[in-house]
């Protein structure tokens, strides 16, 4: 347990050590450590209820952990200075702050608090996403409200952009636009992005890193390119199951299927061949989605 909150590297946008959280008897997060390098776009996948939102809130100091510490740009998350807060753009899952205001008024109000507020961007985005400034936020559809929340976070020109399931309420066109925005900011301004999502193909487009949250732990946390082409599922027919070794090199999981065959997920080192089992074995390369399903099932 970390009793001492020491200063951390201010160049590291966000990091945590040994974060733990329990809701009543349920352990949501256990001993979780993570460091997101500057300029990275980290996609966080996890089943619904796995604790993605909790993790994000604790990273930003919006929720108290039971144990462990989190830092943003070197400062303890629970005591962020205004200077650091101004470098943050955050879109929670159900944005409803200032819901009584009208779109235009809310953005004006918020904008006054941020020195790097991009007014031109706000106007362009409102137009492109067809949002009327005079509309009260409470009267917008969930998708529209999410879009306004996104504009609000992006207009800050943040150094760290944190999005909790940003695409959940968006249609495919709006989603693609959002990804475009993320991709460009990450590339040009070196913005660090953390977003949680269950839309795996979105992640495959823009993420540089991916992390799986499962059973209160980070099961996987790697650069995306390293992950592709490295995981496969070997399916061994019933007749051959008996002769396979207890544990294959790089084995991640193994399970018997209803028909008696055995499915083994293996990871190989780059440029290494797949384990050769011969006989009645099928090899399926696993994309991100399949890998996630296999590992978390």
């Amino acid at each position: 347990m970390n009793a001492v909150i020491a200063a951390r590297d201010p160049a590291l946008p966000v990091q945590c050590e040994n974060l733990s959280k329990r809701y009543d008897t349920r352990t949501v997060l256990q001993d979780l450590s993570l460091a997101i390098p500057a300029g990275a776009v980290l996609g966080l996948i996890g089943r619904n209820g796995a604790g993605k939102s909790t993790l994000i809130r604790m990273l930003l100091g919006l929720q108290l952990p039971d144990a462990g510490v989190a830092h943003v740009f070197g400062e303890p998350s629970l005591r962020l200075s205004d200077a650091v807060k101004r470098r943050l753009g955050y879109v929670p899952q159900q944005p409803d702050a200032l819901a009584w205001m009208r779109v235009g008024d809310m953005l004006d109000f918020v904008g006054r608090m941020y020195p790097k507020w991009d007014v031109a961007f706000v106007q362009r985005a409102l137009q492109r996403w067809q949002l009327a400034p005079a509309q009260p936020l409470a009267k917008l559809s969930p998708g529209e409200r999410q879009r306004v929340a996104l504009i609000r976070a992006l207009a800050v020109t943040p150094d760290l952009l944190v999005l909790d399931e940003p695409a959940a309420a968006l249609d495919p066109v709006a989603r693609r636009e959002l990804l475009r925005e993320i991709a460009l900011r990450a590339g040009e301004s070196g913005t660090t992005v953390l977003f949680s999502t269950n839309i795996v193909s979105d992640l495959e487009r823009v993420a540089s890193h991916v992390a799986f949250l499962h059973d209160s732990r980070l099961v996987l946390n790697t650069p995306l390119d390293e992950l592709r082409d490295r995981y496969a599922r070997l399916v061994i027919a019933v007749a051959s199951v008996a002769r396979i070794p207890q544990r294959l090199p790089g084995e991640l999981s193994r399970r018997r299927r209803p028909d008696g065959s055995c499915a083994i997920v293996v990871a190989r080192a780059p440029h290494e061949p797949w384990p050769a089992l011969g006989g009645d074995t099928r090899l399926d390369l696993l994309g991100l989605e399949d890998l996630f399903i296999e590992v978390t099932e």
Partner: peptide, 18 residues
Amino acid sequence: SVREVAAHHAINPMTVSR
């Protein structure tokens, strides 16, 4: 440009650079 390709396909510009 890297930017153009990244924007068109909504992919990470580092990927294009690479």
